[in-house]
């Protein structure tokens, strides 16, 4: 049985941990609001860009369309862009990305394909370095946070595009956490190359468009931008999701610490009571012996 002093130390240490987790929760909650606003403010651009590409792609001739849109006809080599967080203590956030990446790599390798990884965020990069470190083409940190810069996404997009044009890989997929709400994140896979385009809803509206410059040229200049845009919105979503995950995780931790303090205090009080009773018995029996 632990001594009273040990128990007291233990209780104090849990209390200070609780203070830290409570503070982290508040910080995450405050940042989450900003990140969520940023993620929502970023959606119109991405949506409209997607609409325009869908409109153009619907009319592109499959044989002469740019490779970024239709692929280079092969699928032997894959690039996975993995977006995790730079920091831990956010529940299953990084774990689920890591797990999904591992599954995906195993699946692709099982099909006899070569897999390359572009890691964004420190956590998953560290977790997978031992297994797949040889396949990393780059590993970046510090592009996420409450203020994601479009320039960072544009750089990443450029890396991906030039890699594709040099023939380093044939297909590019991005794995990231999508922010659903404050308690749910969803791991999403979205294909960057060949570009995944939705339906150009409203064919009749698209049929009499004028293009400046010509459609092919316009499409060629837009495709690199849609890659950057997709990466940018994934970074925004992932940042918001990370903060949400951290908030939930820290909320749970604070609650668990509270429970633990209650339990330990009970044990402490019982032991104290037992010690007092013991001392009383000793005094009384000592007095009786006289």
């Amino acid at each position: 049985m632990a001594s009273l002093k040990d128990l007291k130390t233990r209780i104090n240490s849990v209390k200070s941990t609780q203070k830290i987790t409570a503070a982290m929760k508040m910080v995450a909650a405050a940042k989450l609001r900003r990140a969520q606003e940023a993620a929502e403010a970023g959606r119109p651009y991405a949506d409209r860009m997607r609409g325009v590409i869908a409109n153009l792609a619907a009319k592109a001739d499959a044989s002469s369309a740019p490779a970024l849109l239709v692929g280079n006809g092969e699928a032997a080599s894959h690039l996975l862009v993995v977006i995790s967080a730079d920091r831990g203590l956010c529940g299953g956030f990084n774990g689920s990305i890591t797990r999904q990446t591992r599954t995906e790599v195993a699946r692709l390798q099982g099909e006899g394909k070569t897999v390359k990884l572009l890691m964004v965020g420190r956590k998953s990069a560290d977790a997978l370095r031992r297994e797949f470190g040889d396949s990393y083409i780059a590993s970046l940190e510090g592009v996420q946070g409450t203020a994601v810069a479009f320039a960072d996404a544009a750089d990443l997009g450029e890396t991906v595009r030039s890699g594709f044009e040099n023939g380093d890989f044939d297909v590019c997929t991005m794995i990231y956490n999508k922010f659903i709400n404050a308690i749910t994140q969803e791991v999403k896979l979205s294909q960057l190359i060949p570009a995944e385009v939705g339906d150009a809803g409203g064919d009749e509206a698209g049929s009499n468009y004028d293009y400046e410059p010509e459609e092919d040229e316009l499409l060629a200049s837009l495709l690199p931008r849609i890659i950057s845009t997709q990466i940018y919105s994934a970074l925004l979503e992932s940042s918001a999701a990370e903060l949400a995950a951290r908030m939930t995780a820290m909320d749970n931790a604070t609650r668990n610490a509270g429970d633990m303090i209650d339990r330990l205090t009970l044990v402490y009080n019982r032991s104290r009571q037992a010690a007092i009773t013991n001392e009383l018995i000793e005094i009384i029996s000592g007095a009786e012996a006289l």
Binding site: V52, N208, Y209, D210, E212, L218
Partner: peptide, 19 residues
């Protein structure tokens, strides 16, 4: 500022997609 020169858009302009 289009890549092929400045252009103005008035109401009821024809549908246009310009870089």
């Amino acid at each position: 500022p289009g890549v092929e020169g400045l252009f103005g858009v008035l109401p009821r302009h024809a549908s246009l997609l310009a870089d």
